[in-house]
Computed example of a mutant assay.
Amino acid sequence: MANYFFYVLLCADGTFYGGYSTDVAARVATHNAGKGAKYTKTRRPVRLLYAEGFEEEHDALSAEWHFKHQSRAAKEAFLAAHDVQWEDADHGHT
């Protein structure tokens, strides 16, 4: 059973945010309340695009680290490979 999660948010400015949590729904609510990460505080509202569960904390943290250290194109390719669609016509991203 998965106890640790890597997740991806779409921020209001069209950027992606990768994070880690043991409770994704609560963490997204925290981000949208302006009490989450410094990065998302000024980019609200955020929308959950993707979440993946892991049995080991290290694996979830590793997935987060790898996502955060990719280019925008690589992040988009990751999401597309997982059949994640997002709309961001206002910011020139697809």
Rank of each mutant, 00 (worst) to 15 (best):
V84W: 11
K35N: 11
R44G: 12
E56L: 15
Q85C: 07
D13R: 04
S71R: 06
D13E: 14
Y4P: 08
C11A: 10
H91T: 14
A51D: 09
S71I: 09
R43F: 11
W65D: 11
L10S: 02
H69M: 03
Y7C: 01
R47V: 07
L79W: 01
E64A: 01
E52C: 04
A37H: 09
V24M: 05
A60S: 08
Y39W: 09
E55N: 12
S21V: 08
F54Y: 15
F78D: 03
H91L: 10
V8N: 00
G92S: 11
E64W: 02
T30G: 06
G18S: 12
A73D: 03
H82D: 05
K41I: 08
T40F: 06
S62R: 11
D90T: 13
K41N: 11
A51H: 14
K38Y: 13
H93V: 14
D59S: 15
G53A: 08
A29Y: 00
T15A: 01
L79H: 05
R47H: 09
K41A: 15
Q70N: 06
Y4D: 04
G18V: 06
A60I: 01
L48H: 02
F78E: 05
L10G: 00
Y39T: 10
A74P: 01
D59Q: 15
E76W: 06
V84L: 03
H93Q: 09
Q85M: 09
K68F: 01
L9P: 00
T30Y: 00
F54V: 06
G18I: 03
H91C: 08
G53E: 05
N32F: 01
R47N: 11
R27C: 02
S21G: 03
E55G: 14
S62L: 15
G14S: 05
A73C: 06
R44V: 07
N3S: 12
Q85S: 15
L9K: 07
A89I: 09
H66R: 15
V28T: 04
A60G: 10
S71T: 14
A25M: 13
P45R: 05
A60H: 01
G34K: 12
T30H: 00
K75G: 02
E56C: 07
G36C: 10
Y17K: 10
G19L: 03
A26D: 14
W65S: 13
Y39F: 06
H66E: 15
D59V: 02
A26S: 13
F67G: 04
D90V: 14
A37F: 04
T15K: 15
G14K: 03
R44Q: 12
R44Y: 07
A33W: 03
A2P: 13
Q85L: 15
E76L: 09
K75L: 07
H66C: 11
